[in-house]
Write a protein that binds this DNA or RNA. Structure first.
Lengths: 197, 197, 197, 197
DNA sequence: GATGAATGAGCCTTCATTCAT
DNA sequence: CATGAATGAAGGCTCATTCAT
């Protein structure tokens, strides 16, 4: 008597999730050159099983990024329409961003995709687009903040880049040296200080 | 008539340099998973020749990092003993650091080494050590600066990490999007602003 | 209420037959490299089920060939003892052979076994033996026919081989280009012409 | 001092030829499912070397068929324009065909490509086209021969198919049982007999 | 000093086979 | 009886490394 449809379905979802989580950890840390077997071992399954869930290593990476990459709408579009001064909204956006990181590895992963030449085609562009979207929102908030005097004068693009760099670098170091970084992950105030007039 | 000892020696050094430069460019951009042949093609030599200068790919990477990583003495130890206020020395140190980057790829390379699992053993530790050394100097200057009121109050470690993150991230983005970043590479002022009281 | 022994038995035989028929179609067309799953899909069962009826892919192939290969007695031995002239018996034998092909795929399958290196050991020999048996009968009839003047003179072995080649090749083409071949499958007369004095 | 250009070139051609010959033997006998390693072992080289000469197993097969498949012009087009009666030209064509086979395995190989589903795309069509071309020439000669009374009456298409079947099957058996077949490979007369009026 | 032919270890992927349900 | 989740051996392919010239 075969397994019930529901049991089968549940197993498939659990395993898929387990493999994706293993892939996140492995690819984020070791780079996309990590082997499917690395992932399988991390997930405590055989590499063969990974191929029942993902047609190829490339598709596994693709599914992982698609699942992990923040939705562009997740607080970006509507931040613009929130009440409060530009400075307050900026504060909110960065705070949210810093707080929302359950999986800092995600950002490492995105970086790996950007820097690896074996990334699935299209993914690099997607990540780039998402980055630009966030950049755009930040940029506008900064310009608005400069108008109200809440943000220091200066080239807004350079300020945006500095923010991005902070985020990128801090996340990176947080993953590699979790002992020293994770507990005291710099809060949003550090970014705001850069923008203080 | 055989080549003179000197000519021979000169050729060896030129080739070695050519290969190392090619390796820097290739490994920094493609990651350590790039092939020895990629490097050889970039250097316009045969892959076989690379093995006459470096015993293995690992050793090539090792030599490259050893050559490129900033010497710990190169302005670190003695910054402490320079004249001027802590704030002035801090300003000087960061300015030097930003200016000194002929090869921003070096920093990408260091990041590749940190994130790849095929890096020569010991290199990760070396890079980490150098980072810690720079961290230490920065940290002390910040503490001193806080004492003189030139630097904002706050956890010095967190400030150091923010600086590092900026450096790391900005360099990374500068390499990947040279059009947008290289010309206007943020100068030291952006870091100093973070530290402003 | 459990199934009765008889119903159970009937189901087993039906399933077994279904799988064997699927296997014939699949292996004959795709070659022995076709997968067990190909067969299971063709039979509309799970691949797991195939293993309840056949211990291995090899055994499935073995059972299939054993079932499909013409029995050596099926009209061979007794053709020799039939009444009529050798020429008449020859005519009868070839006509029977051409007519008896419900499953031309069988012959393709035999060819696949002969040309694949993953065929169960012994099967090749079996097929070869059966071929030789048929050859022997044919050969004797030809020799007898030559004695009576019904068959052209010449090396009987060469004539036998020509007949075999015709059969083999025609069946093959009939399967691959059924539109052009099946309807007008050459009848026995074509073979007889080769033997005409 | 590197090898001279000429020596390198010569080696490359020799090795390429050696690998292609090994591939012919292996693929013709074992089917396209034979491994690249089978080919490499037969050629007494490493499998890695095979990949320096052919980008993939598929391309190896493709190159092999392209090299081995008889040119359509190689005696087909011009047979039509030869002097002599249709019967004489038919005789000539078939004799040439039988004689020209240095590598009877070629025909097995073509059959393997037709019956395998892993054949490079386009190859099947090519082989089919070549077969049809030969068929067309044969068919016309037979029709002409029937007009002059040199060839037996009957459906020309059926006669063509019989000829093809003989060729196909005889070649097959010649390869599998070279002891019995190769020495006494049926000459063209056997085919002509089938066409005798 | 320099080249590129050659090898084989290792990774991606498929599929025969097992087994829990 | 039947299913499909799971495993691992094996084959396609890449690339670090060696070595004859």
């Amino acid at each position: 008597m075969p397994r019930t449809k529901e049991a089968s379905q549940r197993i498939r979802e659990e395993q898929r999730t387990k493999i994706l989580q293993a892939a996140r950890k492995v690819f984020a840390r070791k780079g996309l050159a990590a082997t499917v077997d690395d992932v399988a071992v991390e997930a405590s399954v055989s590499h063969g099983l990974a191929y029942r869930y993902f047609a190829s290593k490339e598709e596994l990476i693709y599914a992982l990024v698609k699942q992990d990459i923040p939705e562009p709408s997740a607080g970006l579009q509507n931040v613009q329409d929130m009440p409060g001064t530009p400075g307050e909204r900026l504060n909110f956006l960065l705070s949210e961003f810093v707080k929302s990181r359950q999986h800092p590895e995600i950002y490492l992963l995105l970086g790996q995709v950007l820097s690896s030449d074996m990334a699935p085609p299209g993914l690099r562009e997607l990540i780039h687009q998402r980055g630009l979207a966030l950049q755009g929102v930040l940029r506008q908030l900064i310009i608005d903040g400069q108008a109200t005097g809440e943000v220091a004068a200066g080239d807004p693009d350079q300020l945006v880049r500095a923010i991005f760099a902070c985020l990128d670098g801090l996340i990176r170091w947080a993953v590699y040296y979790p002992d020293q970084y994770s507990d005291h992950f710099p809060d949003a105030s550090i970014f705001l200080r850069m923008l203080k007039p």
